[in-house]
Amino acid sequence: MSKAIAWPVWRTDVEAAAALSTRDWLYAVLGAVLIPPCAALIPVLLIDSAQVAQSNVAAAIYYISFLVLPGPVVTWFVALVGGLLLEGAIRLGLGGWGVAVSLGVVLGSATIVLFQATFSSAFYVGFWTFFVLHGAMTAALCWLILRIRAPEVFKYHH
């Protein structure tokens, strides 16, 4: 008797991958690019400068939110490439959330390497972690949106 895994880390069902439509991919990539900055806008609008001056936590949330806001300007192309790579992985049966997050880490690292020539080394060192985490978060969000839209694709029987 085979057991179905609904949240597979690495493997997915190859035959069920055909159920993913172009609309599913469009929603997943757009959602992964646009949801984080929309969510980051909330603290920017709610936290005023007096709270930032008084609290380190408020200041951290405020400034991290400001870093996420311009995300679509930087990440749209990387998300598109990542979406295509994730589609290929899912069609090969390697579309688990672990694969998606790994792709996000690799693409986040590649993005910061490309920016290394543009910015100073202090910027490069300080924001490497941010780009890697942002890539992992974007890829995980893309995978989650696909998982919600087509759950049958992400059931792996072993």
Rank of each mutant, 00 (worst) to 15 (best):
74 V>W: 10
113 V>E: 11
47 I>D: 03
20 L>E: 15
125 V>T: 10
60 A>F: 11
147 R>H: 15
56 N>G: 14
21 S>N: 14
95 G>N: 06
54 Q>A: 05
94 L>C: 03
111 T>M: 14
69 L>N: 05
88 G>K: 01
97 W>D: 00
81 V>T: 03
82 G>L: 04
27 Y>W: 11
127 F>W: 15
50 A>C: 00
84 L>F: 09
35 I>C: 01
91 R>K: 13
127 F>C: 11
24 D>E: 11
76 W>Y: 12
137 M>S: 14
48 D>R: 04
138 T>H: 08
143 W>D: 06
23 R>K: 10
91 R>W: 04
56 N>S: 12
45 L>M: 06
63 Y>G: 06
31 G>S: 02
22 T>E: 15
59 A>I: 06
25 W>P: 07
98 G>I: 01
127 F>K: 12
106 V>W: 03
131 F>Q: 11
61 I>K: 11
112 I>L: 13
82 G>S: 07
35 I>K: 00
61 I>L: 15
82 G>P: 02
69 L>G: 06
107 L>H: 09
87 E>C: 10
27 Y>Q: 04
45 L>N: 06
80 L>M: 14
145 I>V: 09
56 N>P: 14
30 L>G: 02
79 A>Y: 03
25 W>H: 12
42 I>F: 03
124 Y>C: 07
149 R>C: 02
74 V>M: 11
66 F>K: 14
27 Y>M: 06
145 I>H: 03
75 T>F: 12
144 L>K: 13
131 F>C: 12
38 C>L: 12
115 F>H: 08
86 L>T: 02
131 F>Y: 10
139 A>F: 08
119 F>A: 08
71 G>H: 10
147 R>M: 12
135 G>F: 01
60 A>C: 09
51 Q>R: 06
29 V>L: 06
125 V>I: 05
96 G>Y: 07
71 G>W: 06
66 F>W: 15
115 F>L: 11
106 V>H: 01
54 Q>K: 03
127 F>T: 15
75 T>G: 12
80 L>I: 07
71 G>N: 12
133 L>D: 13
101 V>G: 13
48 D>A: 00
126 G>V: 15
85 L>H: 01
